[in-house]
Amino acid sequence: MARPLPPPSPRFALGTFATADAPPFAGLVSDDRVVELTGAVPGGGSVRQLLDTWDDTLAALDALTRRPDLPWLDLADLRVLPPFVPGQVIQSGANYRTHVIDLVAAHREADDPRGEDEARADAAAMMDRRAAEGEPYLFAGLPSAVCGPYDDVVLPGYSDSHDWELELAAVIGRPAFRVTPEDALDHVAGYTIANDITTRDLVFRRDMPEIGTDWLRAKNAPTFLPLGPYLVPAARAGDPADLRVRLSLNGEAMQDESTGDMVFGVAQLVSAASRTVPLHPGDLVLTGSPAGNGMHWGRLLKDGDTMEGSITGLGTQRNRCVAEGDR
């Protein structure tokens, strides 16, 4: 079990920042100000180092925020990088109830005798059974897909079917191997935002349909995982089952759902992943994406589009889409 934490300090988050004339550095963020952590707290050279000693990190950051003499920097003068480069990336599919119901109803076979209402009712019953008796659907991603929260997303020219998937991402802060759902949240350092871009026409292998999905090709192109802007400690992020996930495309809302619609919560996902994979500080566990992807709207990403994604209390990321040849 995790050690008791001191009383919460004023709200803060962690990030990685850069200026034109200095290397990247880990920073503590409060409102629109940043304090460089190099030399200020043990392991403050990078957010990954801070995650390696997470219990001590929290105590040191709490103490730091109470100091009146902090040398604050203006956030507007800094470039915001991904909060850290993860180790392992564990992803979750089909984990929002409404999303799956929408997909089942929208993609009925032409000879399906059911009307939309009946198809939705059948899908809802299926999801209820899955929540009661099933297990999460998990697979692995690559950290090389990560880009910053305000970086361009490069759309590869080999497809025109790139889609958005905004997700809550849990950041591991304590080693976890075969942990129970009851203990799993003790191993979560905090939360951040991930946009798990997917190339829809590469999800299924047409040349070998019997092997099913091909997540390597569909999800892991460079810049296909915008991350951040910040890592918010779990004690200050609110209830992970009651956060609003919202993505707009060119100012128009596409996804707007509560994490309460997840079939399997963060604790169940971390526990399920840890049954097979030893999780380490700096690993990510993505929790799936809610209803409102491009496939639902019949509108996929194009050169010049701007995505803006936010999750309650975790900040906002904003990414412009550019065609590969225009990078």
Results as ranks from 00 to 15, higher is better:
residue 109 E to G: 15
residue 178 R to P: 01
residue 51 L to N: 15
residue 228 G to E: 10
residue 303 D to Y: 04
residue 197 I to W: 02
residue 297 W to N: 09
residue 255 Q to K: 10
residue 36 E to I: 11
residue 4 P to L: 06
residue 142 L to C: 14
residue 271 S to I: 06
residue 50 L to S: 13
residue 37 L to E: 09
residue 326 D to Y: 11
residue 187 H to V: 01
residue 166 L to D: 00
residue 23 P to K: 12
residue 13 A to N: 09
residue 194 A to G: 05
residue 302 K to A: 14
residue 220 N to C: 13
residue 51 L to Y: 07
residue 53 T to Q: 14
residue 175 P to V: 12
residue 70 L to T: 13
residue 275 R to D: 11
residue 57 T to I: 07
residue 118 E to V: 08
residue 291 A to P: 01
residue 70 L to W: 11
residue 133 E to W: 05
residue 99 H to F: 01
residue 31 D to V: 05
residue 52 D to F: 13
residue 99 H to D: 01
residue 160 D to V: 02
residue 70 L to P: 04
residue 310 S to A: 15
residue 39 G to F: 07
residue 160 D to W: 06
residue 195 N to G: 06
residue 127 M to N: 09
residue 28 L to A: 14
residue 151 D to G: 07
residue 187 H to R: 02
residue 327 R to P: 00
residue 269 L to N: 13
residue 206 R to G: 00
residue 143 P to D: 10
residue 43 G to E: 10
residue 4 P to V: 01
residue 136 P to E: 04
residue 131 A to W: 04
residue 31 D to I: 05
residue 242 D to W: 10
residue 299 R to P: 01
residue 146 V to Q: 10
residue 162 H to Y: 07
residue 99 H to I: 11
residue 119 A to D: 09
residue 158 Y to V: 08
residue 82 P to L: 04
residue 59 A to S: 14
residue 223 T to K: 00
residue 170 A to W: 14
residue 206 R to M: 00
residue 145 A to C: 06
residue 317 Q to G: 10
residue 135 E to K: 04
residue 224 F to A: 11
residue 146 V to S: 09
residue 69 D to H: 11
residue 26 A to W: 11
residue 131 A to H: 09
residue 21 D to G: 11
residue 9 S to A: 15
residue 41 V to A: 11
residue 260 G to A: 15
residue 235 A to P: 03
residue 271 S to T: 08
residue 27 G to P: 13
residue 79 R to N: 13
residue 82 P to T: 07
residue 77 D to M: 12
residue 85 V to H: 15
residue 20 A to M: 09
residue 4 P to T: 04
residue 202 L to G: 00
residue 23 P to R: 15
residue 48 R to G: 13
residue 118 E to L: 12
residue 99 H to M: 12
residue 5 L to I: 00
residue 74 D to E: 14
residue 69 D to L: 12
residue 321 C to G: 02
residue 113 P to N: 06
